[in-house]
Design a protein around this nucleic acid. Structure first.
Lengths: 215, 215
DNA sequence: TCGTTTCCTGACCATATGGTCAATACGAAA
DNA sequence: TTTCGTATTGACCATATGGTCAGGAAACGA
């Protein structure tokens, strides 16, 4: 059976470079357009223009609009999961939650479009990633609740309902991406500067860490 | 000039009842559909079906889809402003912010669709209510910042950046509406009970009030 | 050079959707 | 009863959009 080997050898050439490069181009454009216009408001033509490719080319790499959207949402979810790891190897809430807030604020700054797509997806009832919510997200959440509960039992923080603490963390950090336009409008129409992002992150950390009695 | 009087007398009859009733019917259906499908994903036909009226009837009361959407967003903004008043007549942060959290959590529970429409509108760059953001919302925000700063100066709370405190308040309370589906999924697929809503509200209040050093 | 696979794209199609309109019914005042 | 402004609605239209396809170009191994 030399077949698979031959295929995989072919796939490692320049052709896959082209495929990967174009898929990335399309995914980046799609993420932006889906974020700014929503799934229904986004058009393949607009995504194509933003990617600098003919529309028919999109359908060569992604069979349908749904398939493209699905890939965008999955990408975001993976980024989300990466940040989640900052929670893990921490001795106490100050380091754990502090690092988590930091990671999520960084994501909000670097992937605002992705965050918006995720938010819209959930708001519409998670038609595409419902299974992820019920498996990966639920498992992750349960794990983190255990960790937080242990911190409480060890007297490292006040007895807060871990679930609502997690919601508060998600809400607060993602707000800086999802409602970035509102924040910018209230900031004299200017995007937050490096300094303002640091201040925001510090404010969030302080309020939450103090709020759970970890400081 | 008896004209206006006659018109206004006519307008107070049963006809205006019909108009008001149908507009309400349409607006309620539209709010729901816009929230669940987004502006682009919503169709006039779907809204019509949900309102129990023929599609052409919608266009009799609202000339275009945009006009209907505009009205929905404006309605939400008014509800939002009502809650804002709970902030005003309060002696200190515990009452003021406590009441504000309470009011906003109640809104999240009673108007989840409206909250989602608002969120989507802002996420898409506020194409419809940008002027509100720059006028009403900006003014309200500045006013509240002044109040919070006064509390800080009077030593009633820790020196937190008022702006980021407001963002945290908005983010946290609205999260329970906008991400209600996710919360429900993590709640064994069940909507929050009365008790759980109370617990959520209490958790949020506690963390924030403690976090700003008001307790 | 040749054969094969992958990639590219203009032109085209079927359908969904926002919006229009003319005909009609209805309710209230005269 | 007549009149007139309001409300109703089925049928219809123009357009936008997701998706298809055939023909050809480029890339690559032999």
């Amino acid at each position: 059976m030399p077949e698979p080997a031959r295929i995989s050898r072919i796939r490692s050439g320049r052709r896959t470079d082209i495929r990967q490069q174009n898929e990335r181009l399309i995914l980046d454009a799609a993420e932006r357009v889906f974020a700014e216009a929503g799934f229904g408001g986004a058009t393949m033509q607009l995504i194509a223009d933003m990617a600098g490719l003919p529309k028919a080319n999109l359908h060569y790499y992604f069979p349908t609009k749904e398939a493209l959207y699905r890939r965008v949402v999955q990408n975001i979810f993976e980024i989300w999961l990466d940040a989640a790891s900052s929670f893990d190897d921490a001795a106490g809430p100050v380091e754990g939650i502090g690092a988590y807030v930091q990671a999520k604020m960084d994501i909000s700054r670097r992937h605002p479009h992705g965050s918006k797509v995720w938010a819209a997806e959930v708001m519409h009832g998670a038609p595409v990633i419902q299974d992820y919510l019920e498996t990966t997200l639920r498992d992750w959440t349960e794990g983190r609740i255990t960790v937080i509960q242990r911190w409480i039992d060890q007297g490292q923080m006040a007895p807060i309902d871990p679930r609502h603490l997690l919601y508060l963390l998600w809400a607060t950090t993602q707000h800086y991406a999802d409602f970035g336009h509102q924040i910018e409008t209230l900031n004299a129409g200017q995007p937050l500067t490096d300094r303002q992002w640091r201040e925001a992150t510090e404010s969030v950390k302080q309020i939450i860490l103090r709020g759970i009695g970890a400081i």
